[in-house]
Design a protein around this nucleic acid. Sequence first.
DNA 1: ACGCTGATTTGAACACGTTCAACTATGAGC
DNA 2: GCTCATAGTTGAACGTGTTCAAATCAGCGT
Lengths: 244, 244
Amino acid sequence: MKATHKKKVTKTVKGDQTRALILETALEMFRERGYDETTMRAIAQKAGVSLGNAYYYFRSKEYLIQAFYQRMHDSHLAVALPALENEKTLKARLLTVMRTKIDTMKPYHQFAGVLFKTAAHPQSPLNPFSDESDPVREASIQLFDKVLDDAKARIPKDLRAELPYLLWVYSMGIVLFWIHDRSPKHRRTYRLIDHTVDLLDKLIHLASNPFMRPLRKQALRLVDELRDAAESLDDDKIETEMRG
Amino acid sequence: MKATHKKKVTKTVKGDQTRALILETALEMFRERGYDETTMRAIAQKAGVSLGNAYYYFRSKEYLIQAFYQRMHDSHLAVALPALENEKTLKARLLTVMRTKIDTMKPYHQFAGVLFKTAAHPQSPLNPFSDESDPVREASIQLFDKVLDDAKARIPKDLRAELPYLLWVYSMGIVLFWIHDRSPKHRRTYRLIDHTVDLLDKLIHLASNPFMRPLRKQALRLVDELRDAAESLDDDKIETEMRG
DNA sequence: ACGCTGATTTGAACACGTTCAACTATGAGC
DNA sequence: GCTCATAGTTGAACGTGTTCAAATCAGCGT
């Protein structure tokens, strides 16, 4: 992690093609054999390029995963958005989004374990809070914003503003559980989704009660603080890079 | 992670000494230079043993960290237990335990980042839910049990039973935040502790209200389910090993 | 054509974690 | 004291991710 975090940019059409070729090959091999079992040499060989060439386009093996995130989110959107059309209640909409999320990731279950290993590392580009995860993170949060938008539920403004972010964090928790879940067909994860969504729905309504206002305010202040801290993380990273 | 998860056991006094020597050397170097920058070769050399010998006592570099966990917990206990004598309320007791926890880990802040990287990996022996983390995990939960024991707070039995575990999970969350926290003297983490403990205290009292019984029951069922899943993870791991 | 610049590509080399077959030391039973 | 099984120890070798100086290519101005 000594290198800068700027993305490699291709300057020619040929470069684009080579980059795409390497990425496709890598993702295919990751899916079929897993991440650890797929070596950079094997990717390069199958893609028909040299080892060094792969590193010209991808700063490290980890960076190949970044594209995986993006693709996963795109696939999820393609399934979730149409499905949302039919659901009107907050609970049903949330359920839909979460279930389709797991549906989408299913083929990559084995592979996914490695994701969170590196994703949890503060300095990893895969860290969901890092600069480089920004686009896909924002897009994910936006999806939850949409979940709330067309739902008929009276939610106080202060809570409504933070809820998309909170739901995104919740969804990451579910994914973390799913990664560990080895029950057949991931039944446990689906059951967990059912139960947590039910609970969340109730909690949101409870928190929306005027009686809960003080406690809610306090909790939201806390959330704000956490987000601030997460964002300043990126600044520190940049500073560190400049120094050394 | 192909090897079995049984712990290496020394059979002779000399073995004990060598093992201890390697471990001390490793932890010292980790603290001074960080985990990634400390190579197994360097550890072996500084300890005056061969490279292969280090691997005779520690199945992998990761396993050296396991001992770190244990040591960290011992140090924490040594500070927290006396401090708890003076605190009677739940809130003050919880605050004491959390603050001393961070105090204890402070010297290892840089090092700690790597911990969670590997700890988040489902198949890592450092995974806090894994078999091998069992002793230190149980000990940590027990500490929170003690926090509750002498606190004068009326908590329903069902909640009281799960609370130590829940507080342990909470403490892991704080540690995770701390790892990412680069604010001077980790002020942000301490502030987060203050705020979350305050909130937790209120939530616990709220949840103890008879009015909340149904929701509380539902939430606790959920917690149970999560714990079951975490435990069955270990079984699956063993199965996988036997097959492969 | 030619040369020049910058993008792309190469493969050898490096450092690391890990494995393993072979070696040595220890000590219990005779 | 001798034998031998077991614990402990060694360092060479392997496969990996990553780096880098050098080679090649593509387009453009002349």
